[in-house]
Design a protein around this nucleic acid. Structure first.
Length: 575
RNA sequence: GACCCCGUAGCUCAGUGGAUUAGAGCGUUUCCCUGCGGAGGAAAAGGCCGUGCGUUCGAGUCGCACCGGGGUCGCCA
């Protein structure tokens, strides 16, 4: 698909090069700020310096000699000081953009940039035998958005849910279940009971060394493949994943694999040996396997002195497995910022061992969530927020707004709308800003229905749908007409905004930043809002204009739905 | 002590070397339903871009040093 702005950029570049004054490698174009009346600019500074000219002089010379292609998207060119400014051709822009969108529908902005390349995304990673809480929501939501974005760019994307289903603490879970029996409840309530059993066991073990020993014994049985331990472990995994799946379904999350840490157990001895053989690690006098002096990073262990393995050991095996299994071009870890040292160490270790030479290893780090008082969330503090409860609460609040704003909707639709709006608010709260920032849990902000909020975006989409629905009913003509009539400033601004999505999609992927897409959705809704106020659609001055505006409205709905879809947010027709 | 992230309007955030006037939302103060959904639109007020040096024709953006907040640092994950 040849997108309007990509073509525009190509034409501008070619036209500048064709003047013979500026070589291709000096043609760096920028998008001017909204206040400047131009769509693409060539700042002449660098080129002028190379040619020994004053920038304004070069810009003026280029403006005088440049030739514009006959039927192209460049409408005008003008030198303004040291800038050479290009403007889009209004009529051709309208035709090109709307044709693109209507041709692609829900796939608008899809590209082949990643064709033939594989990306593995490691995200979500809930802990087995525990409820998902706000600590997992960020990884899950950001990770899924990245998966959607890379898929749209044509990459083969493998999502992997690296379950926390192993390690020393799992022995405690098994010992606690043995001591108190399996929880009798179902779903998240059962997990809540497991958490309580776990806490009681840990408390009891603090003044009873035998309990501690017993837990270690269970963990050993598990690692050795004991059938009873393994069965109990599997029961915990199933219970947890069934509960997690309900959250995933609501969030539009679908993860291809869930190997989990346990999967790598059989490979660990070999991994440790490899590290020793490669001279990257050594065994110290206590028997622990140590890695030190790796790119000035702090020392870390691959094996405890008691022979046990660590998180790092399993992560190392995980990378190697993924490299062999998927042959990826990149592996992306959507993991909290507190683990950035761990991942730097992991990546350095992998490279020191000669793996992943041409494979990008990236940590998409996200900040921590704090409560309204600025305190970290923790079970011990009693301020923990669980994912399912969070979604339920958000949906309940949305439900009461729906009841108030749209009492005429059928009951089933009210429920569906409340779900879309409530869950959308939670998702958007995580995706509208740079993930690196810490987040303070703010219900007002999160469930806002005005301004930069999921609800506003969904509302804008619903208004588009409403216009299209009415157009279909009033019999005065559907979408079509003459697209070159769309030259009103509000129409042009909206068209340009719609045209940006393909580029925005690339930027979001490059920066591992779903918020770039969220930003685009918001800007699009705003432009639509202006257009909506200024340009009557159903009662446009002429049937031809009405038809053209209906195409614009349909395209806006389409593009908005697409943008929201990339973020994992649903866009109801009515709300 | 070392390293990582953050610091832009009262609050929450965009702005990843270029254009006289640094942009949004919330909140505050005003307007706009005889037109398609007011969960909307328009306008105003509000900013030594943490501080100081430096690089550059040009710095919120790059470098260094401080200050403030968050985080991490061999036998948890």
């Amino acid at each position: 698909m040849d997108y309007a702005l990509d073509r525009f950029t190509r034409e501008v570049t070619a036209a500048i090069v064709a003047t013979g004054r500026v070589p291709l490698d000096l043609v760096e174009l920028t998008t001017p700020k909204a206040a400047i009346a131009a769509d693409l600019a060539f700042p002449a500074f660098k080129a002028a310096k190379t040619l020994g000219l004053a920038p304004p002089q070069l810009a003026a010379e280029l403006a005088a000699t440049i030739q514009l292609p006959a039927d192209g998207l460049i409408g005008a060119v003008e030198a303004v000081g040291p800038f050479l400014n290009f403007r889009l051709h209004a009529e051709r822009l309208a035709t090109h953009v709307l044709t693109n969108i209507m041709a692609q529908g829900d796939d608008y902005a899809a590209q082949q940039l990643g064709a033939g390349k594989t990306v593995v995304v490691d995200y979500s990673a809930p802990n087995i035998a525990k409820r998902m809480h706000v600590g997992h929501i960020r990884s899950t939501i950001i990770g899924q958005a990245l998966v959607n974005i890379y898929r749209a760019l044509g990459y083969r994307v493998i999502g992997d849910n690296h379950l926390g289903d192993w390690g020393k603490q799992f022995g405690v879970v098994l010992a606690a279940v043995e001591r108190e029996g399996k929880p009798t409840a179902e779903g998240e309530t059962a997990l809540e009971q497991l958490e309580a059993q776990y806490a009681r066991y840990v408390a009891a073990a603090s003044d009873d060394p035998e309990l501690d020993e017993h837990a270690r014994h269970w963990s050993l049985r598990l690692e050795q493949g004991d059938s009873e331990a393994r069965a109990l472990w599997q029961w915990c995994v199933d219970l947890t994943m069934t509960a997690a799946q309900r959250n995933y379904d609501r969030l539009g999350v679908k993860i291809d694999h869930a190997y989990g840490e346990s999967f790598y157990e059989p490979m660990l001895a070999d991994m440790i040996q490899q590290a020793l053989d490669a001279g990257v690690a050594f065994r110290d006098e206590g028997g622990a396997v140590v890695v030190e002096h790796l790119q000035k990073l702090p020392t870390f262990l691959l094996q405890r002195s008691d022979g046990g393995t660590l998180y790092m050991t399993r992560d190392m095996a995980t990378v190697v497995f993924r490299l062999q299994e998927f042959q990826p071009h990149a592996i992306i870890y959507v993991v909290g910022e507190p683990q950035s040292l761990h991942l730097r160490q992991l990546f350095a270790l992998i490279r020191a061992m000669g793996y992943a030479k041409d494979v990008g290893l990236t940590h998409v780090a996200f900040g921590t969530i704090f409560d309204a008082k600025g305190q970290p969330l923790s079970t011990r503090r009693g301020n923990m927020v669980y994912l399912e409860a969070l979604l339920d609460d958000a949906v309940a609040r949305a439900r009461s707004v729906v009841e108030q704003k749209s009492p005429e909707l059928p009951e089933a639709e009210k429920l569906a709308v409340a779900e879309a709006v409530g869950v959308g608010a939670v998702v958007y709260n995580d995706l509208y800003q740079d993930p690196k920032r810490n987040i303070t849990l703010d219900w007002e902000r999160m469930l806002a229905t005005e301004g930069n909020s999921a609800t506003y975006l969904q509302y804008s989409h619903a208004r588009c749908s409403s216009i299209l629905r009415r157009a279909n009913e009033d019999g005065a003509g559907g979408p079509g007409g003459d697209l070159t009539l769309l030259i009103h400033p509000a129409e042009q601004r909206l068209l340009k905004q719609l045209a940006r999505l393909p580029e925005v999609l690339r930027e979001g992927a490059e920066r591992y930043a779903p918020f770039v897409i969220a930003d685009w959705c918001y800007a699009t809704a705003r432009e639509f809002g202006v257009f909506f106020e200024q340009c009557p659609v159903l009662k446009a001055e002429s049937p031809a204009l009405r038809g053209a505006r209906l195409v614009l409205v349909a395209a806006t709905a389409n593009a908005l739905r697409r943008g929201l879809g990339l973020l994992g947010i649903r866009a109801p027709e009515r709300m």
